[in-house]
Nucleic acid binder design. Structure first.
Length: 1094
RNA sequence: GGGCCAAUAGCUCAGUCAGGUUGAGCGCUCGGCUGAUAACCGGGAGGUCACCGGUUCAAAUCCGGUUUGGCCCA
């Protein structure tokens, strides 16, 4: 494109954007821009890798758009910014999608299909998803290094995870341990709490009697024994198989009752508050309280396992089947809680404290193992009925119901109900370095900072050890090799390794491999470290033999959160490549949504601290979530999803980006709004119009921007003003960007474009550009507007890269960079920065606005001149501003003259009432303050003095009051024909503008003439006449006085409407008008153009 | 169930930290301009500041509670 080429009348975002895409491609705009900054200071931005399943939604679009905006800004600031995008490609969600695709039901299908083949399928699926995402990101106009993204499935990246894990191990922070986890029996893996989705299901509700041990058996242990039964309640009968103890609340009141049913009596122990309910559930006829005691007194009581017959191998290590206190007990149901440390999380934790056996008779598929005796081979939930039957048969069942509605967790991927199990897992023991984690938080700056100090800190303080193992296939294999037992137990099949008797559990006896190099050196097989794939299919085959012991890799893979936690060094291919790491680490900036507090912000802190002792990022910019227009989450089930593609289709990329970048501040959730997006399109349209307005004139006059040195030119006040405003906007935008408040930066810029450039500068400067003759004034106006536009497009480039490119190209032609994105960020130029002038014009604009307002109140339209405008200024500065802008104000308010009332003086034609300052009245008068305020509002005095007001208030209230100057602000009451409106600057009232709308013959004459002009113009438009066409006008005004007044201004009318003559019109366009009750009939017809020779 | 955050005009948001008669843009409406014209400009209406209670002369603002929504955790 060449300089000042004609452009479309309308801003058409989509067509423009398509063109710009082609242009970028043609000139290698991205490559040139990065190259342009190659020698700049390095800035290490790290992209949080999106998960490769599904396409880009509004949230990811928002996220990438923010990143793009900051990267572009930082480049303009001269930085050489790291912009390698990343993708998180491992994990269960992809496995389940592939399983679905292949029609698999469970792990056995995967084993039959073949682990390696399954991994290959997962890889292919993830790569396909990546392609789709990446195309989306590109289509939003995001500039990142799309040719070379980092992928968590590449060997060099997986190695980065191994390296970090090995470092943590060196610090002694890796251990194996048992934990109560959510197990999906279909996926046969642990799933994280936040991956559990809840729904309501009907379950059994049973009361069970646990028989206290008979006194005769006392010899077997030191535990106290008694008669009767403890009553417990549960909705999971299948966990009774694993019962290990019963929990009570030490401070709660319990009772022993003799309960009677069918003539038989038995002793039952329950919480006092629960007696009635329990006995009612058991349909007892009557009862008698025979014993009262506190929970504490029951500790140590022993009972028999109610399924001892069916499960002979039940938990029976020392301490089993006794009563203990626990803080999870409530006075609900029975006040006694059946506890199975092999299942429930709270049970597990209390069981560990008490050093009890972790008895879990259930396999990873939710099926009872051989230790479950009679129930072996049954799926746990399917065994509920049989267990209830067995309890009933042995007389242990007190009551049973079905269909009790409770919340049940489901696997998020496959909707299978989860079971809680205790299994062997691998941990990074972050609780051992909690103080260090909390210290390291301080080394990062968060925007907003409160998020770090509240939410993040709270979370880190409460976080448990990090379970990093998953019993799956598609992930980074955990690089731990353990010594084989003599029994040579198998580690295959995704089972957690290290079963009983296999390995001591002492990490000193295990081998943790940190790099591919090390792997190649230590394993028994010959492998090429350059080419080896680190996935499960490969590394599970590798063994290590040292000092006569053979080591086999444990079967598990890493939790997918560990993958991304090493992104700051993984993205630099560290440890394979070291130089970048040395130079850049830690990251300068990461940008993600607030859900990542618990996710990536945390996982990186944990891993960075465990491996390197530092937080791996210095600055965090946090944004929110994209919600629908009602503030609800976008979801498929509600059907309220807005696709980015639709937004682009309806409004274009730049308007969408402007919406995303401006709608909310840091960490706030976005409410999606089509209206706001449309508004952004309109704002860009104003920019477009401001830009294309001067083009025809510049072209016609062959304006050369390089020929005018603005600093030498005779700039007018309004030129200097707009240039000063530009400097102020640049200063503010830079400040906002430095605080990561791009929304405020954009607001400042758009306000400048709309309020200052469009609504003021262009309006004022138009006449200078219309002038046909060449003049210094015109050229200065060109040069000024040129400079404003050129810097404005640079300022908007990070936000709206497409339209900025288009405008920049046409403004600069061959003279500029190939792309606007190579420009430097405009820095304020002190030569032009003149805050005093900005203040003056601000005052003038406030006066003009108040004057217009007053005109409207007086119902005197701008067409009608007014005799005078009177401006009362509150201070010298305001008075000076009005004085210096006198000509501008008089013209824009269409006044014959402007009178200035200096501060301290009052305009003699006014009367006064007052407004109270409640911040002073309140403390002074207490309860009376409100009444005094009202009296002041209603007062009317001739002099603006406190004394006069005091008298008026005393009149109204009957009591004297003592007022001071500070308490009141005088309000003026104007004479007839005069309307006053106060004007304020930045919220502070600075004075009053009065319009005298009184009529004189002179004013009426011009006013009516202009009424005629406007109507003739409208009729010209009705006739669709050319701008240049000449006309004849026939005027018939039904009021002689008005007709005469209009006749006085015939020349004015003729000039404005291009009328050659006034006279009869036979069959022209004829209309009758009513001008404030005066009827005018106007006829218009075109006349042939006058010959040029005349 | 717990932590953090939000709720102000029809819509999107300021104002809340440091209490003093609630603001902007859009939309609506009325009007202006008629050499940016499917553009541009001005005026106006519109709010029990989610609800209940407390502190205070005075609360959108501080405190307690409730409701609704969001994220995270259980």
């Amino acid at each position: 494109m060449s300089r000042f080429d004609p452009v479309d009348d309308q801003y058409e975002p989509r067509a423009l954007e398509e063109n710009v895409f082609e242009y970028w491609d043609a000139v290698d705009a991205y490559e040139q821009t990065t190259e342009h900054r190659a020698d700049g200071e390095r800035y290490f931005f790290v992209d949080g890798p999106p998960y490769t399943s599904g396409s880009a939604h509004m949230g990811t679009t928002w996220n990438k758009t923010l990143k793009d905006c900051y990267i572009r800004y930082l480049r303009m600031q001269g930085y050489d910014v790291t912009d390698r995008p990343g993708y998180d490609m491992h994990g269960l969600p992809i496995e389940t999608k592939v399983e679905e695709k292949l029609g698999f039901e469970n792990k056995k299908d995967i084993e039959e299909f073949g682990e390696q083949k399954f991994i290959d399928e997962c890889k292919q699926f993830a790569e396909e998803q990546l392609e789709g995402l990446q195309e989306d990101f590109k289509s939003f106009g995001v500039w990142m290094d799309w040719d070379d993204p980092y992928k968590t499935v590449r060997p060099e990246y997986m190695e980065a995870a191994w390296w970090g894990f090995e470092k943590a191990h060196e610090r002694g922070l890796v251990e194996q341990g048992k934990r109560s986890i959510n197990q999906c029996p279909r996926c046969e893996t642990a799933i994280a709490n936040n991956e559990v989705e809840y729904h309501q299901v009907g379950k059994p509700s049973i009361y069970v009697k646990f028989p206290l041990r008979e006194p005769s058996e006392r010899a077997s242990g030191e535990a106290a024994s008694r008669e009767g039964s403890l009553v417990i309640w549960t909705t999971t009968p299948w966990t009774i198989v694993a019962n290990t103890f019963v929990a009570v609340d030490g401070d709660l009141k319990y009772v022993g009752v003799d309960a009677e049913k069918n003539g038989e009596t038995e002793r039952l122990y329950v919480a006092e508050a629960c007696v009635e309910d329990v006995l009612k559930a058991g349909r007892y006829d009557d009862y008698e309280v025979v014993e009262r005691l506190e929970g504490e007194e029951m500790v140590g009581w022993a009972y028999d396992h109610p399924l001892a017959e069916q499960v002979p191998d039940h938990a029976q290590a020392e301490g089993s089947q006794q009563v203990y206190t626990a803080d999870y007990v409530e006075a609900d149901r029975t006040g006694l809680v059946h506890s199975a440390p092999g299942h429930g999380e709270e049970d597990f934790e209390r069981g560990q404290e008490l050093d009890l056996e972790m008895f879990c008779p259930v396999g990873s598929d939710g099926v009872y193992t051989d230790v479950a005796g009679a129930y072996e081979g049954e799926f746990v939930r399917d065994a509920n009925d049989e267990i209830i039957g067995d309890l009933d048969a042995s007389g242990h069942l007190l009551s049973s119901e079905q269909g009790h509605s409770v919340r049940e967790g489901q696997c998020w991927r496959c909707d299978t109900d989860i079971v809680r199990l205790v299994t062997d897992q691998w941990f990074i023991t972050v609780t051992d370095i909690k103080d260090e984690l909390l210290d390291n938080i301080e080394d990062s700056e968060w925007y907003p900072q409160e998020a770090r100090d509240n939410r993040f800190r709270d979370f880190v303080e409460d976080s448990p050890d990090w379970n990093v193992s998953r019993q799956r296939y598609w992930g980074i294999p955990i690089p731990i090799w353990t010594p084989d037992s003599e029994a040579s137990a198998s580690n295959g099949g995704g089972e957690a390794a290290g079963g009983d008797g296999e390995w001591s559990g002492n990490m000193d006896d295990a081998i943790v491999v940190g790099t591919r190099e090390e792997l190649a050196e230590r394993v028994d097989q010959a492998i090429d470290p350059e080419r080896v794939d680190l996935h499960k299919g490969t590394v599970d085959e590798l063994t290590i033999t040292e000092d006569g012991t053979t080591y086999t890799r444990v079967g598990d893979v890493f939790d997918v959160w560990l993958d991304s936690s090493v992104a700051t060094w993984g993205t630099m291919n560290f440890p394979e490549q070291e130089s970048e790491f040395e130079e850049l680490w830690p990251a300068d900036l990461i940008i993600e949504a607030h859900d990542q507090t618990r996710g990536w912000f945390w996982s990186q802190l944990g891993m960075g601290t465990a491996a390197l002792g530092d937080v791996p990022y210095e600055q965090v910019m946090m944004h929110g979530w994209a919600l629908d227009s009602d503030g609800r989450k976008m979801s498929k089930s509600i059907g309220n999803i807005v696709e980015p593609g639709e937004a682009i289709e309806r409004h274009g990329r730049d308007p969408m980006r402007l919406f995303l970048l401006s709608v909310t501040g840091q960490a706030d959730d976005m409410k999606f709004s089509w209206e706001e997006m449309a508004e952004m399109q309109r704002r860009l349209n104003i920019l477009w119009n401001v830009f294309r307005f001067p083009l025809p004139y510049m072209r016609m006059d062959e304006f050369d921007p390089d020929s005018v040195a603005l600093t030498e030119a005779e700039t007018e006040l309004v030129d200097e003003w707009i240039l000063s405003r530009l400097q102020s906007v640049e200063e503010r935008m830079t400040e906002h960007f430095e605080n990561f408040e791009q929304d405020k930066a954009l607001d400042a810029l758009l306000e400048f474009v709309v309020e200052d450039v469009s609504r003021f500068y262009v309006q004022v400067v138009r006449e200078r550009m219309w002038a046909e003759d060449d003049s210094a004034s015109k050229r200065t106006a060109y040069a000024t507007l040129y400079r404003v536009l050129k810097e404005t497009v640079a300022l908007i480039a990070p936000f709206a890269p497409f339209v900025a490119e288009e405008i920049y190209g046409i403004l600069t032609g061959e003279a500029g960079h190939d792309t606007v994105h190579m420009c430097d960020w405009p820095e304020p130029d002190t030569f032009w920065h003149d805050p005093a002038l900005e203040g003056e014009v601000e005052v003038a604009r406030a006066v003009e606005e108040a004057g217009s307002n007053a005109r409207q109140q007086a119902e005197r339209s701008l067409r009608w001149p007014i005799t005078r405008v009177v401006v009362a200024a509150d201070d010298a500065e305001t008075a000076a501003a009005v004085e210096s802008q006198r000509a501008l104000l008089t013209e824009r308010l269409n006044a014959r003259e402007l009178e200035l009332v200096e501060p301290g003086q009052s305009w003699g034609e006014l009367a006064y009432s007052a407004e109270a300052d409640m911040s002073l009245l309140g403390p002074e008068f207490g309860d009376d303050a409100g009444r005094i305020m009202n009296a002041l509002n209603e007062a009317s005095v001739e002099e603006p003095t406190v004394e006069a007001l005091e008298a008026a208030v005393e009149d109204a209230l009957g009591d004297p009051v003592d007022l001071t100057e500070e308490m009141v602000e005088f309000v003026t009451q104007t004479p007839d024909d005069v309307t006053g409106v106060a004007f304020d600057v930045a919220g502070d009232e600075m004075g009053v503008a009065y319009i005298d709308a009184g009529l004189t013959e002179d004013i009426e004459s011009e006013g009516y003439a202009r009424e005629v002009i406007r109507r003739v113009q409208e009729m010209r438009k009705d006739l669709d006449l050319d701008l240049e066409a000449r006309i004849r006008v026939d005027l018939d005004i039904d009021d002689d006085r008005v007709a005469d007044l209009v006749a006085d201004h015939e020349d004015l009318i003729a000039g404005e409407v291009r009328a050659d003559e006034f006279g009869p019109v036979e069959d022209g366009h004829r209309r009758e008008w009513d001008v404030d009750g005066i009827v005018m009939e106007i006829a218009v017809e075109a006349v042939p153009a006058v010959e040029a020779s005349d």
